[in-house]
Design a protein around this nucleic acid. Structure first.
Length: 331
DNA sequence: TTCATTTGACCCAG
DNA sequence: CTGGGTCAAATGAA
């Protein structure tokens, strides 16, 4: 009986892993749908109820509710991503360890099991995620690839319909700064290079290349490489202990004056922090004697704005650099 | 004056 | 050596 269990244990573990992944995905999808529904409700209210548009309290509450729902989905997906990146085979190997399972005997020592990416269809375009697997092994459609250079691992290629009179790719929710354009060998159209607008201030690694397809000029091939760290940073943000509710209990010895906070609580922490007064209560007194008294909207606009100007961001970042160094791992 | 874009030069992997 | 990617000065728009 014990030996049967020893043989079956790794497979039970694998089944368990798949079930738990499915549950996480289901929960994340449910959260995304909830958030979309809330956003739709807010949109409806803004369009058809004039009084709502001027009710800051209601708007703030709605926005926080929507952001909260998306954040919960993000957390679920991060968990799922971490599970995927942990090799299933490693899981099995650790399960096999010491069980004497004969089925584990032929298991290679250092090969991780790669999860092949699926070709995903998006509204308005298709996308492909390149993994370490060779392109020959990749199923699905053949991608335009004139270059002899290897595609970088972790890049996402999207084919998006191009506006006939516009050179730029459609808005994808991020703000980009063009830093180069090149003639590509054997291509009729030039390739444009963009990096995230927040590259300098926030160390965001997001980049993309945009190129019109030779055989279909109405389609743009957008290649994303580098993850955005400006919008949904998975990195816990460091908040000084004295601003945390648990400050008293944690700051006894004066060492390690920082605490990490979960991303979903960051906005609230930041809002409280930037609105403290000179006695450390909700308006930050700066070195030059000027108070920082930015509204949440201004700060959010500076961080994630869709506009071109970064002047507000400059002011915030230069004036409060000392504080932000503590907040931002990229400083 | 500021900021985004353009463009030629440079770097470096293949 | 070649070509893709990046840098930074020049340019133009607001």
């Amino acid at each position: 009986m014990t030996s049967i269990f020893a043989v079956m244990y790794p497979f039970l573990l694998l089944i368990q892993w798949h079930r738990s992944s499915a549950r996480f995905m289901e929960a994340a999808l449910s959260q995304i749908l909830d958030a979309c529904k809330l956003a739709k409700e807010l949109e409806g209210s803004l369009l058809f109820q004039v009084d709502v548009a001027s009710d800051a309290h209601y708007l703030l509450g709605s926005c926080e509710e929507i952001v909260g729902a998306f954040n919960r989905a993000i957390q679920g997906l991060y968990t799922l991503q971490n599970q995927s990146s942990c090799s299933v085979q490693m899981l099995l190997m650790s399960a096999c360890e010491g069980t004497g399972n004969p089925l584990c005997a032929g298991m290679p020592a250092q090969r991780s099991l790669e999860i092949q990416p699926a070709v995903t269809e998006f509204a308005g375009g298709s996308s492909y995620v390149y993994s370490a697997a060779s392109s020959a092994q990749r199923g699905g459609r053949c991608l335009v690839q004139k270059s002899s250079k290897k595609r970088k691992e972790g890049t996402l290629v999207k084919l998006v319909p191009a506006h006939p009179n516009m050179e730029n790719a459609p808005d994808d929710g991020y703000t980009w700064k063009k830093y180069g354009q090149k003639v590509i060998l054997n291509s009729r159209f030039q390739r444009s290079y963009y990096h995230c607008t927040h590259k300098n201030h926030y160390g965001c690694k997001g980049k993309k290349k945009v190129q019109r397809l030779d055989d279909d000029p109405s389609t743009l091939e957008v290649t994303y490489c580098g993850a955005h760290t400006c919008r949904t940073s998975p990195t816990p943000i460091m908040i000084p202990n004295e601003l945390m509710p648990s400050a008293v209990s944690n700051s006894k010895n004066g060492e390690n004056n920082m605490q990490t906070v979960a991303p979903e609580t960051t906005l609230i922490q930041l809002r409280n922090w930037f609105n403290r007064d000179s006695s450390n209560r909700y308006i930050e007194q700066m070195q030059g004697g000027r108070d920082i008294d930015y509204s949440v909207a201004e700060f959010a606009d500076a961080m994630f704005n869709s506009g071109s100007s970064s002047s507000t961001l400059d002011v915030i970042f230069t004036q409060s650099q000392g504080k932000l160094q503590a907040l931002d791992p990229f400083f």
